[in-house]
Design a protein around this nucleic acid. Structure first.
Lengths: 202, 202
DNA sequence: AGGACTTGCGACATGAGAGTTGCATGTTCT
DNA sequence: AGAACATGCAACTCTCATGTCGCAAGTCCT
């Protein structure tokens, strides 16, 4: 799958990490996502075990439990941002952009769902990016509306909330293949626009 | 508002509680919902404070933190069940039942949202009721489909998931008046059936 | 190869929250 | 009114997660 060279887990990347360390940090973040999504009150020990490292190592990489949680939120937020940007929501044709954003975000949400929305966003860094993404999303829906896919008087705020809710729901059942992911995204967009009722759903 | 004589917070109601006690228990459950929805890891002390009682009193009513959480889940589940039943989903006309269930559940979800879906359901009592409600919900959607509101080949599982997701989202912004609640329920049902796209949204 | 860095392990300090008890003061119920 | 029961308060025990350290063994980089 070749991730796009994700970079900093901690605020400042003064020195480039040793390959060694980077792997460990990643393992810990992934373990934290997995473990915390099951039990948000899980201990450092449980996270360490899931990551396959000693508890002290976790503490070496993340000063405190809180720091780990914040790093996890920051990490997921970054990926979220990348997912949205990669869809070129400001320039691609509205319908295409909407679909593309859906696929990309779904992919991230499946892997980092817990960190993305069950985590407090008191970190300024995270809040800023969230606001940025929110703005992108709002502008995208304006474009979608202007393209005639939404009625001129649509409540864009409600549209966005419904969109988020559908994403959230869709992300709970991870598809196996890329084809299934596409199908899922299609379903989300379709449902958003036309609902599940008796209409031309295809 | 006159709650419908809600009964047992703890598994067995051998002796009727003293009016005194009942108030305290209720205050604690309500406080727990409020406090835990903000911070699921909140302490007994915080819950006690929010309930306006001493920490020891909480322990007197609920043997352990776990017992409190389970009681909270059981309580919310009971109210959930009542909300669905009160809409007579098996006998009322499908469209009416769907709307009525939506209003009723929305009301409960606004007050007990955390306990309803952010809580582990390992208690058999809770799981049983959840399953029961799920079955009711599935049968309701069959009726809704047979009434022609859903296409004959609709994926009822997806329909239900979307419905839940919309409820969840709608319940995050508590309306002030009953009229606003009706409007919200209408919006949920409308969105479920017709989406937010360009169509006859009435 | 060799210095720099990382990790696992065991041991320890600390603090916070859960859970308990006894007693004096209120509140309910009949 | 009076028995029965609930509450607040203060003090205490205990468990457990967090956070630290030093050291020996392993891994990375050039």
């Amino acid at each position: 799958m070749a991730l796009p060279a994700a970079s900093k887990p901690q605020p400042d990347d003064a020195k480039p990490m040793r390959a060694d360390t980077e792997r460990t940090v990643r393992a810990i973040l992934e373990a934290a996502e997995r473990v915390l999504s099951v039990d948000p009150a899980a201990t450092m020990e449980q996270i360490a075990e899931a990551a396959g490292v000693a508890r002290t190592t976790v503490h070496r990489r993340f000063a405190s439990r809180d720091a780990l949680v914040r790093a996890l939120a920051a990490w997921a937020t970054r990926r979220f941002h990348e997912a949205v940007e990669a869809a070129r929501p400001e320039t691609a044709p509205p319908a295409v952009a909407l679909y593309q954003v859906t696929v990309n975000v779904l992919r991230v949400k499946i892997a980092w769902g817990f960190a993305m929305d069950a985590l407090p966003v008191d970190a300024p860094e995270v809040a800023r990016v969230h606001a940025e993404v929110l703005a992108r999303c709002e502008r995208l829906f304006v474009r979608v509306r202007d393209a005639g896919l939404l009625p001129p008087d649509a409540d864009l705020n409600w549209v966005r909330r419904v969109y988020y809710a559908l994403m959230h729901e869709a992300a709970t059942h991870a598809p196996e293949t890329d084809a299934a992911l596409d199908a899922l995204a299609t379903r989300v967009v379709d449902t958003l626009l036309y609902g599940v009722g008796t209409r031309g759903t295809a």
